[in-house]
Write a protein that binds this DNA or RNA. Structure first.
Length: 432
RNA sequence: GGCCCCAUCGUCUAGCCUGGUCAGGACGAAUGGUUCUCAGCCAUUAAACACCGGUUCAAAUCCGGUUGGGGCUACCA
């Protein structure tokens, strides 16, 4: 990467969400690509809240969007709110009327569009795109209620804020010629445009509430970590080559808008989980524990005072089998349960045979241990199995279920050590 | 309907611009190995150039059309 000494024509991009809903996956990907482009070019990233629809815009959505952006690590250099800039839009609309380029229609302001002109632009991602103005109606600039129409406030702001590259979703392609007309009318130089492919649901249809989780905050609640979600998102429409796991910082260095592809991508939850799991494994256990503590406390599995050392050991034990943070709650929950019991259906499946005799023998031997660790518990277990003259599997599986209420999980002796001597023995005795 | 965009394994994609590799990687799937189970890890396998024409000695790659999918068509953003 060359690091030019602040070129005069520095890149400036923006992400312009409308606070009429949560930040969704598609918006996040758009923000991400803008952000990566800014970083790759040594430019600036502007966050502009497009809250011109006073009815539908809500402060809580605005907050949620900014929180999600921050959580994803997409920091902004400048922040604007369109609701604070209505005067500016009005000014430009008046100017266009004065110049005879727009007309009043009641209290609204309309831009007259000349017919039979080809409007061309060279899309950063798609190449040359041409529209004929015969397909474009006269454009509302200011609405009757005094608020600006989307296209107009967008153009005024992009021009005034010095946005050099407008990178947005493909659904805006047909807005582009309309906006180019507005740049022309106001005498502004149009920026470069790049239209990103859309993200589709698994069924190939548009991502919607029906699809399941669409809000970034939903993924956060489900236990995805930002590094994982970001890495997955960057793979939708762009590829760093034969490499899937690439931290944002490194991705920025390789990012090229020209290499973004044109095809809509389907969102694949399985791959997201896999990517997330890679980052879970890469996260130092201490940090992972920090992330888990609030979740466990919220679930009532952990009090204010807990044994940090044993919690970290538990985290270490489950680290390789977590897709999400939330998986830990489900899989390691037995380590924290106050009143542990094996659910009836699990008993029915794995503890049908009464093994009280065997369990008592094991519990008795375990209670004699001075040092309760991996080696000592395994030794005792092997001895008991030998003494009983049974295959180790015959005892391993029932014991695992009795201790953890699950037939699957970490190694049996890891479970015993994590539980500790007292609880291990108590659960063995309570089994039958 | 009109206008615009798009088209490689089931999915995400590399390759396409500058035609000539067994069309490569990853998720998922299947199989085997490791192991007390699961996960993990390792190995192996199956799996794609939408279709039809054209240009060319040669087409996933260039051109045209067809089909299919998507977007826009608001005083929503």
């Amino acid at each position: 990467m060359s690091t030019p000494a602040a070129p005069a024509s520095a890149v400036k991009v923006r992400f312009a969400p409308s606070p009429t809903g949560y930040l969704h996956i598609g918006g996040a990907r758009t923000a991400l690509f803008n952000w990566m482009y800014a970083k790759a070019q040594g430019g600036k990233f502007v966050l502009r809240v497009e809250d011109t629809d006073l009815e539908r815009s809500k402060p809580e959505f605005e907050k949620e969007i900014m929180d999600s952006m921050a959580w994803l690590g997409l920091s902004w250099d400048e922040l604007y709110k369109q609701s604070e800039r209505f005067e500016i839009y009005r000014e430009y609309a008046e100017k266009l009327i004065t110049e005879g380029k727009a007309v009043r229609d009641g209290t609204a302001v309309i831009l007259k569009v000349d017919k039979s002109r080809d409007i061309k632009f060279d899309d950063l991602i798609r190449g040359l795109i041409v529209f004929n103005t015969d397909e474009i109606k006269d454009q509302v600039l200011m609405k009757s209620d005094g608020s600006p129409a989307y296209s107009f406030s967008c153009v005024v702001d992009d021009a005034l804020m010095g946005i050099t590259h407008v990178i947005r979703g493909e659904d805006h392609i047909s807005n582009t010629p309309k906006q180019i007309l507005m740049y022309e009318a106001m005498g502004f130089k149009a920026p470069k445009f790049g239209h990103l492919p859309l993200i589709m649901g698994t069924d190939g249809a548009r991502l919607s509430k029906r699809f399941g989780a669409v809000a970034v905050s939903d993924y956060r609640k489900e236990g995805f970590i930002p590094e994982g979600l970001v890495n997955y998102l960057m793979l939708l429409g762009w590829s760093p080559g034969n490499q899937e796991i690439l931290p944002l910082k490194n991705a920025c260095e390789k990012f090229s808008i020209k290499k973004v592809n044109k095809t809509a991508a389907q969102f694949d939850m399985e791959k997201l989980k896999w990517v997330n799991a890679q980052y879970v494994k890469l996260t130092p256990t201490g940090k992972l524990t920090d992330l888990l503590v609030p979740i466990l406390q919220e679930e009532g599995l952990l009090g204010e005072d807990y044994d940090r050392a044993s919690l970290e050991k538990a985290v270490e034990m489950f680290k390789s089998r977590l897709n999400t943070l939330r998986d830990f709650v489900e899989r390691a929950g037995f380590l924290f349960a106050r009143d542990f019991t094996v659910p009836a259906d699990v008993r029915a499946g794995h503890l049908m045979k009464n093994m009280k005799k065997e369990f008592d023998l094991l519990a008795g031997r375990l209670s004699g241990l001075e040092v309760f660790d991996l080696a000592s518990t395994e030794k005792v277990f092997r001895d008991v199995v030998a003494e009983l003259g049974i295959a180790s599997g015959e005892l391993v599986h029932p014991v695992r279920v009795a201790l953890s209420a699950s037939a699957v999980g970490p190694g049996l002796f890891d479970i015993m050590v994590a539980l500790g001597k007292d609880r291990t023995i108590a659960r063995l005795k309570a089994a039958f």
